[in-house]
Amino acid sequence: MNASSAVATRGASVTPEPSGTAARLIYRHTLPIRIMHWINVIALTLMLFSGLQIFNAHPYLYWGNRSDQGTAWLAMDAHQDAAGNLVGTTRIGQHQVNSTGVLGVSKGSDGTPVARGFPSWLTVPSAGWLAMGRRWHFFFAWVFVLNGLCYISYSIARRHLQRDMWPTRADWRGIGRSILDHIRFRHPHGAEALRYNILQRLAYLTVIFIFGVGIVLMGLAMSPRMDAVLSPLVEAVGGRQSARSIHFIVAWAFVAFVLIHVFEVLISGVFNQLRGMITGYYKVDAVVPEPVEPAVPADPVVAEPAPIAEDPRHE
């Protein structure tokens, strides 16, 4: 770890602003967290794209154990219209829409329409190639799982999880205000910005422990070898085809989380946030850099900067 920079920032190096208001650069994200964050970005991206490639081999989803014809709850199909043009349709339950160009039928590598679930610009590899899609998917599944296990162990060991993510009673009491702040796109800029708000905490915990754990378990539930020992789990979710459906839905829940996450980064100071997750340093407007005694005494042997949430609350 870059202990030297960590030590340097403990004294909260003050960068004077031209306006006269002081701003502090705080060492917010430790190096392991930053590395694991960006590994996760790569792994999730490639698993999504290769996952859609695998989905395209049978672009239908079912509930239960079997995939009997006509029982899919989601279907992407292609058929020819009277003029001989390929028409792509997407059906969810009873609702069917013409999705030509994107779902069901989209342009192949030579520009002519081909029948395929998701389009080539959303799959890895871009051409229909199930065997290679599986290679990408399983390789990055291991990256995702090992990275995720490292992240959870590190976060527990460094009390990142307990201190920064587990909601306190005060957090729960502030949930109404936090929701209003989010709706108004209002973000704190002072030291309060360093502390994860209640919605952030709930979002991170949900993504890590429900989406992350869930998508891995549903992936394993599709493995016939693992099902020899996991069949109680498979049957609990309704069957192997249900597991495949849930795996697909959670993948899109991850996408929804990432879209919201990136949106929040964009509106809360994209440069500062990116610097925080790349170099570790995050700037806060130090209105009154009051050194209050920490509510919980900091671990004296830590060579790292104390996690930010340890800062006294300013409420």
């Binding site: 590899p125 871009s126 190639w129 990408w136 390789f139 291991w142 693992m226 020992v229 996991l230």
Partner: peptide, 29 residues
Amino acid sequence: CDRISQSGLGTRVLGSAEGLNRRVQALLS
């Protein structure tokens, strides 16, 4: 990604997950 998919090294590296899957699954199941 397409270039990696076409390359011998890329497919070998990505394919290394197969051995891991086989060994770990034999352990778990």
